[in-house]
Structures are given as C-alpha cells and as structure tokens.
C-alpha cells in the first residue's frame, strides 16, 4: 500500500533539493523507507550487465578507474567476440568501458541501509566492497550515504572503495562477478521467509550455494548472521550439506575482525541489540573443487 500522498511528495521534495544543493550531509533514512520484503522471483525493472565483462564499474568506484591508456591500445585478446558491436553502436561495448585497477572482491548481499559496508570500508581500504540490495529506495539511500561520506572525507580516499547497486542477486549474481572473483560474501540478517512454501525464496539453499561457490574463490569465506535460530540452523545445514563449503571453526570465526563488525555495525544487528535478541553467526569456507 502506498503511503499518504504528502509522504511521497515530501520524499520527492527532499530528494530533489538534496541532489541539487551539493550538500555533504548524510541522507535521512526516513525518506528512503520501503517495506522489508521483496519478491525475488518477480521481474523487477532491474538494470544489470549481460555479463561481468559488460559491467561498467567506473561510476561506482571513480577513484579506482584505470587511467586512459594510449589512444590505439590493442584490445585484449581474451575479450569475447561481439559481432553486434560492429553494427550496433548504441550500447556500450566492452572496449568503451573504463576498466578498474582492481576487481570487486567483497559483496554484501542484501546490504540494507549499508551499515556493514560503511563500517568495513575503512578497515579494508585496499579492497573494493559492493553492497547489493533489491529494494530500490534502500539502495538509493546507501548510494547517497556513500556519496556524502566520500564528500565529508575529501583527499583521504576514505569510502572510495565502497559502492552499492540495486540488484536481485538470487537471479543475477553471475552477471556481475566472474568465477573465483570474490574473497568474501556477507549474508547479514536475511529475510527469514518463515513459511515452508517460501523457502525457495531464502538467500541460502543447496542450489544457490552452488552459485556462491562459483563466484567465491577457494579459501574465500561466506559470512552469515541472523537473529532467527530456525534460519541459522537452515543456513548451517545447507552450507554444510554442500560439498563446496566447510564451516569455519569457532575460534577462527571469533578471531575474524569482520565478525565483530557484522555483529555490531549492521542496522539489523543494532536493532537486535536494543531488543536484547540473540545473534547467530556462522562462517563457511569455500573448498577447492575436487578433481574432474
């Protein structure tokens, strides 16, 4: 249900003024609220690259864009043949995309309002982090938040390594990342989807774990945290049942600096803290593929 008309109007007003007056103030969450559930099976009006090579990361990480090479630099031989580019120049071809100096290595899937992303960015300054969020308003908030943080810290390069985009990762994860590209995936306080007939909509399942295994390199880690015990057990059961993952032992888990950040810095984590709720953490390491 749509909110009262003046609520939407205020939101529009707020966004149009804040976009134009070049403020460095953090965005206000109240103008970006959106209902907590999104249907991952429906066809949202999403923009996503047709393949990782077609993704233009430049606008997301402007500080990490490669300097323009010499004018007639040879195209990389590894590039796929794209017959269409010869006839059709309306779309951005792989050659026109400004490459980054490094690849995105950390994905926060369902990043929500971006608490983890913002807390993690200064701790991993040399790594590119990407928040992915299916709700349009919320992803817009995180983008504004990162923009403001970058503006508040000029010259330091702080927060230049964090970005957020709207995506349905359950459908389109391999459109963004190549095989073995990621070193960490965070799944923080995902939608529990309590009803059994909605379990396919859960962010962790035997079949989806295969896609996580595809984009995460061997040795990489999938982090999960939830306040719903039932979902925690589900995630543990499904990752442990997947031959490509093994659970990280507890001592190792507690020694990981990301775990503390995940417990205290995510929006949901703070909310659970206030309600004195439980938090269940589980980490899973990507194993090497068996011989073939």
């Amino acid at each position: 249900m749509a909110g009262p008309a003046n609520k939407r109007q205020k939101r529009e007003e707020y966004k149009s003024t804040s976009r134009t007056d070049g403020t460095t103030e953090l965005p206000k969450k109240k103008f970006y609220r959106q209902r907590a559930h999104a249907n991952p099976f429906s066809d949202h009006q999403l923009t996503y690259p047709s393949s990782p090579d077609a993704m233009n990361w430049g606008p997301y990480y402007p500080a990490f864009v490669q300097q323009l090479p010499e004018e007639n630099a040879p195209t990389e031989p590894s590039e796929t043949v794209d017959v269409s580019t010869t006839k059709d120049d309306s779309t951005l071809t792989t050659n026109q995309i400004r490459k980054l100096t490094q690849d995105v290595e950390v994905a926060d899937i369902g990043c929500g309002f971006g608490g983890l992303l913002v807390a993690l960015a200064p701790k991993l300054p040399n790594t590119l982090l990407l928040g992915m969020e299916i709700r349009m308003q919320v992803s817009e908030y995180v983008q504004e938040r990162i923009k403001a943080l970058r503006a508040q810290n000029p010259g330091t390069g702080l927060y230049q390594n964090a970005a957020c985009l709207r995506a349905n990762t359950m459908k389109f994860l391999p459109n963004f990342f190549k095989k073995d590209q990621l070193s960490k995936i965070f799944l923080c306080f995902p939608d529990p989807h309590f009803k059994a007939r909605k379990h396919k909509a859960r962010i962790v399942s035997t079949t989806l774990n295969s896609e996580y295994a595809y984009v995460v390199r061997p040795g990489g880690i999938v982090y999960t945290i939830t306040d719903v015990e039932d979902l925690h057990n589900w995630m543990v059961q499904h990752f442990e049942a997947h031959p490509s993952f093994e659970r990280v032992p507890e001592d190792e888990q507690e020694a990981d600096e990301c775990v503390q950040v995940m417990r205290t810095e995510t929006e949901e984590g703070k909310k659970v803290e206030r309600n004195k709720g439980p938090k269940y953490v589980a980490l899973f390491r990507r194993k090497e593929d068996p011989p073939w």
């Binding site: 047709s50 393949s51 990782p52 796929t80 794209d82 459908k171 389109f172 391999p174 459109n175 095989k179 035997t206 774990n209 295969s210 896609e211 295994a213 595809y214 997947h242 031959p243 490509s244 593929d289 068996p290 073939w292």
Partner: peptide, 23 residues
Amino acid sequence: DEHIRISRGMPQAHIIEGFCLGH
C-alpha cells in the same frame, strides 16, 4: 533470465563450470 549455465555432470552437478552470458 538469459542465463546458460554449464554444470559438471553427475555426481558433481553441484559444481558450476561456467556460464554463457550475452543474451
């Protein structure tokens, strides 16, 4: 949703070898 997925055959069907993306 425009994906062609290449998986290993049984019994390693859980391992994705790659995708043919571009559609």
